[in-house]
């Protein structure tokens, strides 16, 4: 994927994010994630039924990378089983952290495959996934 296409996809997710805005519904599990740098601050919520992510939403204040990654994550994970989601998250985190990963699992999330070159952006790209992992853990309990 060339850089222009990547950039366009990221900006599209940033400017027109998927499922931005939370809902007041007890069927959802909600977590808040903040960056150590005290800038990005997002809430992610998901509705999980019979082990499948039926819906996911987010809101908050964050930079372009964090906001777009949250949107792309939500788009990718809706409809996936928890196990599939966990596998995607694991591979995505490996990609950001420069470890071996399976790009065929990551579809649109592959646009973040060069974020590792900007160490100050890595946490931004990882933040929503941290939130989603917490939701998946909570849903098991």
């Amino acid at each position: 994927m060339d850089d222009k296409l990547k950039r366009d996809l990221i900006l599209e997710h940033y400017q027109n994010p998927v499922n931005r805005g939370l809902v007041d519904n007890e069927d959802y599990i909600k977590v808040n994630s903040r960056n150590e740098s005290c800038v990005d601050n997002i809430d992610v919520m998901a509705k999980i039924e019979d082990g499948i992510i039926i819906d996911a939403r987010f809101d908050g204040e964050a930079c372009a990378i964090c906001t777009s990654a949250t949107s792309a994550m939500i788009k990718t994970l809706i409809g996936k089983t928890k196990e599939e989601a966990e596998e995607i998250i694991r591979n995505y985190e490996n990609m950001i952290n420069e470890l071996p990963y399976d790009k065929t699992l990551l579809s649109e999330l592959n646009v973040y495959d060069t974020v590792y070159k900007q160490p100050n952006r890595k946490n931004c790209a990882l933040l929503p996934f941290r939130g989603m992992k917490e939701i998946l853990e909570k849903s098991t309990k």
Partner: peptide, 11 residues
């Protein structure tokens, strides 16, 4: 423009 995006641009 989110402040962090501005700061990273300036960097």
């Amino acid at each position: 423009v989110f402040s962090q995006d501005t700061a990273i641009f300036l960097d």
